[in-house]
Amino acid sequence: MTGNVIRDFRGDTDGDWVVARHAALYARDEGFDASFGELVRQIVTDFTNAHDPACEHGWIAEREGTRAGSIFCVRQTADLAKLRLFLVEPEARGTGLAQGLLATCMGFARDAGYKGMTLWTHESHVAAGRLYARTGFTLERSVPARSFGVDVVEQHWQIAL
């Protein structure tokens, strides 16, 4: 991963970037409306204001000194972590950055004592689904839904740690 760095999320400087990039990329690629950015803003705000650093953490990936991705591990239950806000900029895809972010997040979850990890995504994220499957996640269910102004198929994945 030459030129790639994974560092701790800094809420005071990284939060707005996480929100803006999620909102922009999902609007462009998925047709999501502004409610998606509002959801991301709420997740980032809640994390920044009230996360428990012993069992919750966020990371920013940088490529050649520029932000290129994000991932968060938050508590779902005492034994189950939830992966959130996983994003890799299009120009950084295929560089190993996504695998590095996922491995960092899962390693933290194991070290924090979680027994498993869950995540929610959409069927349209084919490359992410392949990464999850390669890593050992199992697709638990797919559910058609209307979210963020568009029809989607929500996917729920899980892995034992």
Rank of each mutant, 00 (worst) to 15 (best):
F137E: 02
D46C: 04
E140T: 00
A133Y: 01
M1V: 14
A78D: 15
V152F: 02
D33C: 00
F137V: 01
Y114A: 08
A27P: 06
R93M: 13
A133G: 00
C55H: 05
L101R: 06
G37A: 05
Q42Y: 04
I6D: 08
L119F: 00
A128R: 06
A133E: 12
C55A: 05
L102F: 09
V153P: 00
W157K: 02
L83Q: 12
F47M: 09
I159R: 13
T66I: 12
H122P: 00
M1E: 12
V19Q: 13
R93T: 09
M1R: 06
L119V: 00
V18C: 14
G149A: 09
G3K: 06
R10C: 11
L131S: 03
I43K: 12
S142Q: 14
A78V: 13
D12I: 06
R7V: 11
R134G: 01
A20G: 11
L39R: 01
S124K: 04
Q99F: 05
L25G: 04
G69K: 07
C105I: 02
T2M: 09
R146N: 07
R41D: 13
S142Y: 00
T48M: 06
D14I: 02
H156F: 08
H22D: 06
S35M: 07
E38H: 05
A109Q: 03
E154H: 00
A68G: 15
A81Q: 08
K115W: 00
G15I: 02
I43W: 12
C105W: 01
L80S: 11
G116P: 00
E123G: 03
H51C: 11
G94V: 10
R141F: 02
D111A: 15
V88L: 15
N4Y: 01
G65Q: 10
P144H: 01
F108Q: 10
L102H: 04
A133N: 03
G149M: 10
L102V: 14
E38C: 02
H156Q: 04
Y114D: 11
